[in-house]
Nucleic acid binder design. Structure first.
Lengths: 137, 137
DNA sequence: GTAATATCTATAGTCACTAGAGGTTGGGAA
DNA sequence: TTCCCAACCTCTAGTGACTATAGATATTAC
């Protein structure tokens, strides 16, 4: 049996966040000690690591709840789980592409700054005038 | 003189967001009509485009406020503005690097899915077991 | 003049947590 | 065994950057 603090240390998920996940239904309410403190089965470690890992990958709590639902019914086809992963992959790739465009523009902007006076500062000028951009965002 | 709706249409910033920016001090409170509706000078178009452009680049409202402060005093050296742009470039580049690692892992995860039963689903397995990862995140 | 649309303020909701107040419990040292 | 303090409890409010709603008033087109 683990206290919430031990669970927190061993998973890297903050105590308050663990309670939040319980409240949101991502993990089941655990047993309590005589003094009403949470006491977790070691299994919860695994569940919480699952959740943390998925969150680190940027998967939304909603999608994680779906995956948990799926994983409790081990006889269902896993194409739905795969679909969630693929969906997320697409989002990630879009994000990367977008950020790379921004990167390009920021490099352009800050490489042209002469560092003299704001009146002639390329950073502020180019942020004021969208037309200076090479591409849309 | 522009109404808030016209300003919104011409900049792509939502009406409610324009009022929010005013409340946050990003744009100055405009004159009002006899009936108390906001009436903007055409100049505000430029300011709001500046803000939108910077927000699209992911620059925080706080940083934008700093840039606006800078740009009102056109005799200051613009190195501070450049610093904000560079700082932001670094954040973007970190984000890109991180997302690319996630991308790699998601590709690995979802390419191994056999599509049979959840019990043997690689997506759920590998999300449960961080040890299957090739790299940390 | 009337009807439709736009605008006003003020308040509450969103997401995914995080922080704090004020009180109780658990476990090791004296 | 008693004490102490860190860890825990619940409940509420705060974060950031908006978004949405309600109910009232203004503007505009016909």
């Amino acid at each position: 049996m683990l206290s919430i603090g031990q669970l927190s240390k061993q998973t890297g998920v903050k105590v308050t966040t663990i309670r939040y996940y319980e409240q949101q239904g991502l993990i089941a309410p655990p047993h309590r000690s005589d003094g009403n403190q949470r006491r977790y089965e070691p299994d919860t470690l695994k569940q919480l690591r699952f959740i943390k890992h998925a969150r680190d990958l940027g998967i939304s709590p909603d999608a994680i709840a779906q995956l948990i639902d799926l994983s409790t019914d081990t006889d269902k086809p896993c194409s739905a789980a795969d679909e969630i992963a693929r969906q997320h992959l697409k989002t990630i790739q879009d994000k990367i592409a977008c950020l790379q465009r921004l990167e390009k523009e920021l490099i352009r902007i800050s490489s042209k700054c002469t560092g003299k006076r704001v009146g002639e500062c390329y950073v502020i000028q180019s942020l004021s005038d969208h037309g200076l951009c090479f591409e849309e965002h």
